[in-house]
């Protein structure tokens, strides 16, 4: 199992803010969990950082893993690209134990990945990050004309939609015909 260090290293800047608290109260060792995306690269993330994800938080609560069990069984998110999961993990670490400000400047910078990021964040149920990502998407069309909006949000024209629909129907018809022929062949 390979493990990236981003989870723990990104969490480091948060430590000074928690230091006075830990001086006052006896320090409880932080538990860590492991997640991996499509690329199978395992990310070590603290339970505190994972609180942001309602999905993972629910999984942790339901499974009641010990640290060893968590290490042996990283949460698999096969539908999320590795680099996207990395962005999400980084964000969770940066915002560990902190409320998210309305204008979050720590949003992952790779805007070309925004589509996949929004889908991942929606799947992982990270409400604050989802709101911020959606705001970014909405901001893309501020002050734009319908033609510009069509281009930015990649909205097909009616003719393109109709052509795609016809194509899909044709394909479905061919597939259905193929299945019928195969079933008839099996029957013989």
């Amino acid at each position: 199992m390979s493990s990236t260090e981003q989870g723990t290293s990104s969490a480091a800047p948060a430590e000074p803010t928690t230091a006075p608290e830990s001086a006052a109260a006896p320090e409880v060792p932080e538990s860590f969990y492991y997640v991996h995306g499509k690329d199978k690269v395992v990310h070590k993330v603290s339970a505190g950082a994972l609180q942001h994800s309602a999905l993972i938080h629910g999984m942790i609560s339901n499974l009641g893993y010990t640290e060893e069990q968590a290490k042996a069984n990283p949460f698999p998110f096969e539908n999320i690209d590795g680099d996207i999961l990395q962005m999400v993990v980084d964000w969770c670490n940066q915002h560990k134990g902190k409320p998210t400000p309305p204008e979050d400047t720590n949003l992952p910078k790779q805007k070309e990945k925004l589509f996949d990021l929004v889908l991942a964040v929606n799947y992982l149920e990270i409400k604050e990050l989802l709101t911020y990502c959606c705001k970014q998407v909405a901001m893309m069309v501020k002050g734009k004309s319908p033609e510009e909006i069509r281009e930015i949000w990649m909205i097909p024209t009616d003719a393109e939609d109709e052509a795609a629909e016809k194509e899909a129907k044709k394909r479905a018809g061919k597939e259905a015909a193929g299945e019928t022929a195969a079933a008839a062949g099996d029957a013989k």
Binding site: L119, C134, A138, M154
Partner: peptide
């Protein structure tokens, strides 16, 4: 930058639309 908005699942589309004003939605 472009993004295929209509490929989002409908709940996600709703989240984006909630952040748009009537002018943007109209356009």
């Amino acid at each position: 930058m472009t993004i295929a908005l209509l490929n989002f699942p409908s709940d996600l589309l709703g989240e984006v639309f909630k952040l748009c004003n009537p002018f943007e939605l109209y356009l």
